[in-house]
Amino acid sequence: MKANYGYMDGSGEYYITIDTDHCNNCSHHGCITGCPKGMFQVITDDYDDEVAEIKEEFRKKIKYDCADCKPTTDRPPLPCQAACTPGAITHSW
């Protein structure tokens, strides 16, 4: 499943997509510690799979919470993506 967390508003589209098929069998859970804001958690989803998700309280403001990792210039690799060994995380912006 591709789970898109975030939103679109007048200023743009801000989604973090987690491909939960890649989460299966991941025991590393790098996303939990990789994100400096602690936005990720691992849960048992509606289909009883163990997957990562963005915590509820961050979903309406990821544009702002991710801002520190997205400077306008000299953007380093995103820590969440770097920490996710199965490569399940993508950002839309």
Binding site: K2, N4, Y5, Y7, M8, D9, D46, Y47, R59
Partner: peptide, 14 residues
């Protein structure tokens, strides 16, 4: 009926 892709927008009223 299993979800393969989704998004939810509840941040913006538009």
């Amino acid at each position: 009926g299993k979800v393969t892709n989704f998004l939810m927008n509840d941040k913006c009223a538009a």
